[in-house]
Simulated scan of single mutants.
Amino acid sequence: MERIAAALGNAERWRIIELLAERPHSVGELADLTGLRQPQTTKHLQTLARAGLVAVFPLGQRRVYAAEAAPLAALGRRLGELAAAVEAHGDERDVIARYRAALAAESAAADREHWADGRTFTFERVLPAPRDVVWRHWVDPDLLASWWVVPPMTVTDCVLEPRPGGRAVLDYRDAEAQYHSQGRVHAVEHGKRLSFHLAVGAADAVAFTGHYDLALADAGSNTRMRLALRITGAAVHAAPFIAGIETGWEQVLGHLADAVASSSHHTAGHDERRDSQP
């Protein structure tokens, strides 16, 4: 496929294929129709032939070239698949558009230190898992690392120790930088509530401190989760971080929903198999 795409990536070869799609032509005819010299036309035809896009038929002293439909059809299918993938992931483009709009607004507002202090955000979800499963995904470091950042970022360290004074850490990186967040847990009601703060930043420069309050409640066999966030200590350079809070948390909480659903399904399947044993 790469060879086909490379061969068609030249405008002159593309024009030749268009002409051959209508009917076979000799080198001389193609040269006349494209305005190229015959040696150039011959080289282009050789490239197209190596990619399997044209076939040559000797007719006495003449050589006639014809387009091959199969590789063009294969390329068309692959392009169709790519177009479908782009459409299926259109929400990713929407996330970028929303972030760009938020970044422009926050950058305009970030004209002094503490500019965003007191700003609050609230996120609510009904998660498809029992409360104990959701709680474990917040306090177990391995489970926490499985959902707490969005691609292409990677968690390098994270912990929320479920005890007053416990460590709160979220370190992650992407291809361009490393980010460090640390703080403390303030209040814990096991399985129901977790209050903590994180000082967020990069390169040892704190951008802001986020004060989080997580509350979990039963909702039938599901869990109603409420996460409240309040900003303090906002530096001027915090604008990119704060602009990404809403879209970022919406994404990671979507990952959390998927993670707890998968974990709950796995646990239920294990229990069913155990109960079926004699």
Rank of each mutant, 00 (worst) to 15 (best):
D32I: 06
L33W: 02
T34C: 12
G35F: 09
L36V: 13
L36M: 11
L36W: 00
R37W: 03
R37M: 06
Q38D: 08
P39I: 08
Q40M: 12
T41H: 07
T41Y: 05
T41E: 01
T42G: 11
K43T: 03
L45C: 03
Q46K: 13
Q46V: 14
Q46L: 15
L48Y: 02
L48D: 04
L48Q: 06
L48W: 00
R50C: 10
L53C: 00
V54K: 00
V54P: 03
V54D: 02
F57M: 14
F57A: 09
P58H: 02
P58W: 00
G60Q: 08
Q61T: 13
R62I: 01
R63W: 05
R63V: 02
Y65L: 01
A66V: 10
A66T: 06
A67K: 05
A67G: 07
E68F: 08
E68G: 14
A69F: 11
A69S: 13
A69N: 09
P71F: 05
P71G: 05
L72D: 00
A73P: 12
A73D: 15
L75S: 02
L75K: 00
L75G: 10
G76W: 13
G76V: 10
R77L: 15
R78A: 15
R78I: 09
L79S: 09
G80V: 08
E81G: 14
L82E: 14
L82F: 13
A83Q: 05
A84H: 07
A84I: 02
A85R: 10
A85K: 08
A85M: 09
E87H: 03
E87F: 00
